[in-house]
């Protein structure tokens, strides 16, 4: 999917979160959106999803502006940071509801088996643990064929086995030619899967490139140190 973000501004009251952000993603692959807390990662993602309405600027997906639109979201899968569902709905009902909104799923059974969600299908969502809820979230995000997949801290609360399965899923989607945006604080994951890094600082893109490029620029072998290096330079 082609994503083009032009001069994006967003302020919440007096706080300017995005300050003229420009970004173009033209090839497929996995993009890690990184940055310190409050750098505007989540705001950027939510702008793309239409959950946050930008103050200024434009967002184009495959060449079409998506501001104030809604139908385009059928091309996006989103895995939110915190998973909270209506307490009294059953897992099955939630799946059915999302299917009613987005259409039939090809991969529902496969993912349910992969993450061993089967025993929870008849349980109420309010009774599930955080990890299980995250698995349901993963299911909802990956069960449809979407051109763009946005994962906001996808590893939260996952056990190691589920984490491995998640990585597999992400790789598989990449192979299918999807565009995947990931925000995370876990640098190991970035090193493992990211094709490209987009580093945000103070509402602008500070760095855009591959992991080796970043390592080269900062002179640090380790990604974590490389990031720390950037922050030290700017905030020193």
């Amino acid at each position: 999917m082609n994503i083009k973000i032009k001069q994006l501004y967003k302020n919440f009251g007096k706080v300017e979160v995005l300050q003229g952000l420009d970004l173009e993603v033209s090839e497929n692959g996995i993009f890690a959106v990184l940055g310190p807390n409050g750098s505007g990662k989540t705001t950027l993602i939510k702008c793309i999803l239409g959950m946050v309405i930008p103050t200024k600027g434009d967002i184009l997906l495959n060449g079409e502006s998506v501001l104030n639109e809604w139908a385009y979201r059928s091309k996006i899968a989103y895995l939110p940071q915190i998973a909270q569902f209506p307490h009294n709905l059953k897992v099955q009902e939630l799946i059915k509801m999302i299917k009613e909104i987005r259409g039939e799923s090809q991969r529902e059974q496969e993912i349910i088996e992969l993450f061993k969600i089967q025993p929870f299908l008849d349980k109420k969502l309010g009774t599930l643990s955080g990890g299980t809820k995250q698995k349901i979230n993963i299911l909802l995000a990956f069960m449809f064929e979407s051109e763009l997949i946005i994962l906001d801290e996808p590893t939260t609360g996952l056990d190691p086995v589920a984490l491995i399965h998640l990585k597999e899923l992400i790789q598989e989607e990449k192979r299918k030619g999807k565009t995947i945006l990931v925000t995370t604080h876990i640098m190991k994951l970035v090193e493992e899967i990211a094709d490209k890094i987009v580093f945000l600082l103070d509402g602008k893109i500070y760095f855009e490139g591959t992991v080796p490029q970043l390592q080269e620029q900062t002179g640090e072998k380790d990604l974590e140190h490389a990031i720390a290096n950037i922050l030290k330079d700017t905030y020193a």
Binding site: Y72, R73, Y78, P80, Q84, H87, I101
Partner: peptide
């Protein structure tokens, strides 16, 4: 307030606000 997060999930789906 209780369904805020769920509302966010819905907002990311192809439905009119």
């Amino acid at each position: 307030y209780d369904s805020r997060e769920f509302t966010e999930l819905l907002l990311s789906q192809p439905i009119k606000r």
